[in-house]
Design a protein around this nucleic acid. Structure first.
Lengths: 222, 222
DNA sequence: AGCAAAAAAGACAGGCTTGACTGTTTGTTT
DNA sequence: AAACAAACAGTCAAGCCTGTCTTTTTTGCT
């Protein structure tokens, strides 16, 4: 009973402390922004002593890097969870867009955006963020295609999906300061119908076969 | 000769120093991000002593607030300048989109985005930024309509323009870290043709009369 | 019980940022 | 010319952030 189970208990304690630290880091990002996210504040918010914090994450870079990975996990999890709860009714496309729009306006997106902007001028953070973000971006594209139930080999479909995601990111940024939901809702209403015609297999007005770049690479995606 | 001309000289000296400080602030935002933009660094970059800096802008908030206004001016100026140089050829719509896309990827956009994100968690900065950004947003919308030479009263036109700007903002953010120009170019190519059909007065597939919110309010626009 | 290792706690030093303060130069008025 | 005001220069202290260090507690094993 002792050998493994108790060792597991200890590991579990570590894991719990680390989880609290990472969660607190994300919360601080949302509440205080990147420059307001100090290690001291994170430790205080997590209810963890500074010594314990430094024990698990020796430097701020280590903490933030781990938090980036943690955030990525949480974003993917949240997406899948909400996607699973999606009904397959006639308004399927509308619901999918609403779901994605919610992902681009929630706290997790805000935290990711803070990191994204900060990473621009912070090489260490950038190196940690870019590969993960690329992964999330591709995953998001794939999930969108799957949820919409469209065939990506159809001309124009890939572009339509990418455009939707980029548009949602833009709307998400616009929603940062002032509440933009009224405008966003109206705009998305129009876009939904637009998207419906683009995805219709009978060949809409756009899409003559060309392919965009090398798939969805853009990040800050959920 | 003395009364006015010399007073002008002194005022001009002040103005020049202030301009250098504001310009240096924007440059620091682009190069080092919001948290890397310290007053010391700005003063050094501007070639202005710390005393002189504190004389003109007693606090960091004062400096940044002034820089926000300055940045707004520069963005508007840049837009108009480039818009004036726009040829009125057959590829008019393509050129307009390219122009706007450039505005959403240039240094001025980056600086504005840094401020935008920082303002989310900084009330003082936020209060200074929101009204100015709203102005730029409206101006950008107006200018786009004008450059495209479309009639905004036509159903769907307003939505199409707003969608274009929000999409460009999203693409601009995606371009922050990794160079996304290949994907962006391809995507915009598709969107241009999409936009052309949306703006065509013979009634495209979208736009049945509803209006979105209260005009373009979203910021981080140029 | 007793020992070793992991986890946690908290004090401390070094570096940086901000803004206050004093002194100096340049420009302006009478 | 003399007094006055604005612009400029540079130093200083207080506060904060990061990361090192030592000490204490908890856990795991014999």
């Amino acid at each position: 009973m002792s050998a493994t189970s108790i060792r597991v208990a200890q590991q579990e304690r570590s894991r719990a402390t680390q989880a609290r630290l990472l969660e607190a880091t994300v919360e601080c990002l949302v509440e205080h922004g990147w420059s307001g996210t100090t290690t001291t504040l994170v430790a205080a918010r997590a209810g963890v002593s500074r010594g314990a914090q430094l024990h698990h994450y020796p430097t701020k870079a280590a903490l933030v890097t781990a938090a980036v990975a943690h955030l990525t996990e949480r974003r993917a999890l949240e997406l899948r969870t909400e996607a699973d709860a999606l009904p397959a009714g006639p308004r399927r496309l509308d619901r999918v867009v609403d779901l994605l729009a919610a992902a681009f306006t929630g706290p997790l997106f805000v935290a990711a955006l803070e990191l994204w902007v900060a990473a621009r001028t912070d090489p260490e953070l950038r190196d940690a963020l870019v590969p993960l973000e690329a992964r999330v971006g591709r995953e998001m594209h794939r999930l969108t295609v799957e949820l919409l139930g469209v065939d990506e080999r159809q001309p124009g479909v890939r572009e339509a999906v990418q455009t939707t995601l980029d548009l949602l990111r833009g709307l998400g940024v616009a929603n940062l300061l002032s509440d933009d939901s009224a405008r966003r809702t109206a705009l998305l209403h129009a876009w939904k119908r637009q998207l419906a015609t683009l995805l219709a297999p009978d060949g809409g007005p756009a899409g003559d076969g060309e392919r965009a770049g090398d798939g969805e690479r853009a990040g800050v995606t959920a």
